[in-house]
Design a binder for these strands. Structure first.
Length: 420
RNA sequence: GGUGGAGUCGCCUAGUGGCCGAGGGCGCACGCCUCGAAAGCGUGUGAUGGGGCAACCUAUCCGUGGGUUCAAAUCCCACCUCCACCGCCA
């Protein structure tokens, strides 16, 4: 949720942000007008309510005719108060709904435009050159008996899979290495719930435009998370944190569930786009003035992980129109995928500024200061999808795959050998 | 799933319709006292919206949501959470 005060004081900032996202900026005028009406309704209600309280109080002290007269007056006021309160509440709700529909104010410097208007910030590492025809990750996964999508489909349907043998070991090793890096960087490791209440899910912003992406358990009115960002953001819901403890950094390990509605026919082969995968996610709570710097740190930690698995990749700065509603800025790291001659998103880090914290009411306080909303940020450290890029980039002519050096202690193998 | 008990200001607690505009204690902050400290004494001590340059004023908040009433922490209904016991169970 955007800040109403900022909107009142600096409406131009929101107008510019809306235009950068390619969205309607007239919502600013509508919001300001609605806010005006709401405040005047509130004042009207408060005045009536104050009178009602004072008359009500005098009823108990009076007697006889005076009491009867006061009672009559009190009854009148009671009806008036109800009406005025309902009006004020109605306007407050309208304002809240409209306010909730407005995406975060874009950070200055983010590229203007849509999905294709990202800016490449850097390219890291060498793309591999093969003197044989490289196999794609599924072919390799099957040769290694690491990935079984056929039985995944048999048991659970399309876009489900089994990781088996060295495949399972590769994922466990990768995610353990991510956790270990996070712990060494001072993150608190977390294993989170993957089912969330509607309020928690809505609070983190995943029931907005993402609603059709989310699995819902009808019988229990719970949602399956698409990322541990959701439980980690809701973790301090309705809390006031000690300013001295910021930044607070959590590394969450969870399975993630996505319906992938609307992606029919896209990445149908293998495990690039699936309904269930595992992920280690970094999540930071920090002071708003430190958020840009924290965002840079998260990106560095992602690059550190990518270096450990020795993948060629590029970093892109996502354009305003392609940002999620909570994000003010977003950087993705995309690994090179040799068999498809394209880049594949492996990490994504967003600075949500105070947008998410405002909706979830997560604040911090320094001694003797008023509470302020924290900034929240998130970033990927490793996911199941990384296996795709690792297999393809480190394959050899015989179908074996060299395990990146840093990962070897975690996987327990130097080379993954095809199963005869 | 069943039965019973409980949820009040950071923590503990008082509070059975108007004297609650929520009292007391702990903690915390400041002051007095002291060479310094402890103890003691005094003062202060939440959140949110609105108004105001400000001090301050005002409304709301006693688990959540409804209801009764001129008036609700207090009465009624539903729900949530926690605790205990029973049943089932990885």
């Amino acid at each position: 949720m955007i800040d109403l005060r900022t909107l009142r004081d600096h409406p131009d900032r929101l107008r510019a942000s809306q235009r950068a996202r390619g969205e309607d900026d007239s919502v600013v005028e509508t919001l300001l007008a609605l806010d005006e009406r709401r405040r005047s309704a509130l004042t009207g209600y408060e005045t009536l309510r104050a009178e009602q309280k004072s008359v009500g109080k005098s009823v108990s002290a009076a007697s006889g005719d005076e009491r009867a007269a006061l009672l009559a007056r009190a009854k009148e006021l009671s009806a008036g108060v109800k009406g005025a309160e309902a009006e004020a509440e109605k306007l407050a709700k309208e304002l809240d709904e409209l306010l909730s529909s407005v995406p975060n104010v874009v950070e200055e410097g983010a590229p203007v435009g849509g999905e294709d208007d990202y800016v490449v910030l850097e390219e890291v590492g060498e793309k591999p050159r093969f003197d044989f025809t490289p196999r794609d990750h599924l072919e390799l996964g099957e040769m290694l008996a690491a990935i079984d999508t056929e039985r995944g489909a048999k048991v659970s349907g399309a876009r489900f899979f089994f990781l088996k043998g060295v495949g399972a070991r590769l994922q466990l090793g990768l995610l353990n290495m991510a956790m270990q890096q996070a712990i060494e960087a001072g993150f608190t490791p977390m294993i989170t719930p993957v089912l969330l209440k509607p309020e928690a899910m809505a609070g983190t912003g995943f029931l907005g435009s993402h609603a059709s992406e989310v699995y819902r358990l009808e019988a229990d009115d719970l949602y399956l998370v698409g990322t541990s960002e959701a439980p980690l953001a809701a973790y301090h819901w309705n809390e006031i944190l000690d300013g001295g403890s910021l930044p607070m950094r959590y590394a969450g390990w969870s399975s993630c569930f996505r319906r992938e509605a609307g992606s029919y026919g896209k990445d149908t082969r293998g495990i690039i786009r699936v309904h269930q995968f595992d992920k280690v996610e970094m999540f930071s709570y920090c002071r708003p003035e430190d958020a840009v710097q924290e965002h840079a740190r998260l990106l560095e930690w992602e690059k550190q992980m990518l270096a450990k698995v020795e993948l060629p990749y590029r970093v892109i700065d996502i354009a305003a129109g392609d940002l999620g509603s909570s994000a003010a800025r977003k950087f993705d790291c995309e690994a090179w995928l040799p068999t498809q001659n394209r880049y594949l998103e492996l990490t994504s880090t967003s600075n949500c500024t105070e947008f998410q914290a405002r909706r979830l009411s997560v604040r911090y306080r320094d001694t003797d200061e008023k509470p302020r909303h924290v900034a929240t940020l998130n970033g990927t450290l490793a996911t199941t999808r990384w296996i795709v890029a690792i297999l393809e980039n480190h394959q050899q002519a015989d179908g074996s795959v060299v395990v990146p050096k840093a990962l070897r202690p975690y996987v327990g193998l130097d080379v993954l050998e095809p199963v005869k």
